[in-house]
Nucleic acid binder design. Structure first.
Length: 277
DNA sequence: ATTGAGACCTGTCGGC
DNA sequence: TGCCGACAGGTCTCAA
């Protein structure tokens, strides 16, 4: 589920439950996610008030009244849901819901009376208390929707990089928050081939090449649109331009191409061999 | 210093 | 129907 637009949607869902509220109870249903929870995790959260709830790339960041930073990454399959009441007993059996609750790994009971539950079947997510200036947070590239991320910034960051453009977009140090879906989407909108060496959109004669302008604009457009649609998952939001559309006709005006799927760095790339150059 | 491959997990889907 | 492999929205580590 989660790339930048989906994480942003989760953040907005969480605001009414968590912002300005404190942790009344914290329950860990297992000792680890991708990594163990840090020592004293429950104790350090309990009673703390959430002062800010922001997003950096694909990370959610809560600054607590104690000064601690609660950091949450949703991994591949993580999400957070907000519920009004604890649903512990007296409910009719619902096999589908029971199955899902098997992966409720962390529960926050907030002073708003709302419960926030972290669910993550694959357990690639991370929850930690850490310094915002430290890696990986400190090594993230610019926020793609910020002013600071423009053609010049992108060009500077891909200079001398021999990896393909697609793989470069997945590197969170170059730009933060893009994942496998929106990398393919942005390249298609920008009509740039995923195979190109990243450095081919770098600076020449002191100015970013045209590809860098198109690509930054496409990244912003694709992400803004997805945020506007509430992100994407199986059941809602985005109709993708190319992602998961192998064999379908290309959506670019006047293009007769057919969407292809290939693998780069172990991940699927969807693209149009005709209009992406 | 970069880069690719493999590891970490569970679930789902399509083919036989 | 059941079994099996391929694949899934992300990092992280390790060897070349």
């Amino acid at each position: 589920m989660p790339e930048l637009p989906e994480v942003e949607r989760v953040r907005r869902t969480l605001l009414p439950a968590m912002l300005g509220a404190s942790f009344d109870r914290v329950v860990l249903n297992r000792p680890d996610l991708r990594r163990p929870f840090p020592a004293g995790f429950v104790r350090r959260l309990r009673g703390q008030r959430v002062q800010t709830l922001t997003r950096r790339g694909k990370y959610l960041l809560a600054v607590l009244s104690s000064g601690d930073f609660l950091v949450i990454h949703l991994g591949m399959s993580g999400w957070l849901r907000v519920e009004r009441t604890a649903t512990l007993h007296g409910r009719p059996r619902d096999p589908a819901a029971d199955l899902e609750r098997r992966h409720d790994h962390v529960v926050f009971k907030m002073s708003t009376g709302l419960t926030v539950t972290f669910n993550d079947p694959r357990r690639f997510g991370v929850m930690d208390l850490m310094d915002a200036g430290r890696p990986p947070l400190g090594t993230l590239g610019p926020e793609p929707l910020s002013r600071a991320f423009d053609a010049r910034a992108l060009a500077g960051r891909v200079a001398n990089r021999r990896v393909s453009l697609k793989v470069a977009l997945l590197d969170q140090r170059i730009v933060a928050g893009i994942g496998n879906i929106y990398a393919s989407e942005a390249l298609h909108l920008a009509r740039l081939s995923p195979f190109r060496a990243a450095a081919t959109v770098a600076t020449r004669a002191g100015a970013p090449r045209p590809g860098a302008e198109r690509l930054t604009a496409a990244i912003k457009a694709v992400l803004r649109r997805a945020i506007g649609l509430g992100g994407s998952d199986r059941y809602r939001g985005a109709r993708f331009r190319v992602y998961d559309r192998e064999g379908e006709p290309c959506a670019t005006d006047g293009c007769r191409g057919v969407i292809a799927r290939i693998v780069q760095a172990g991940r699927s790339t969807f693209y149009c061999p005709v209009c992406q150059r």
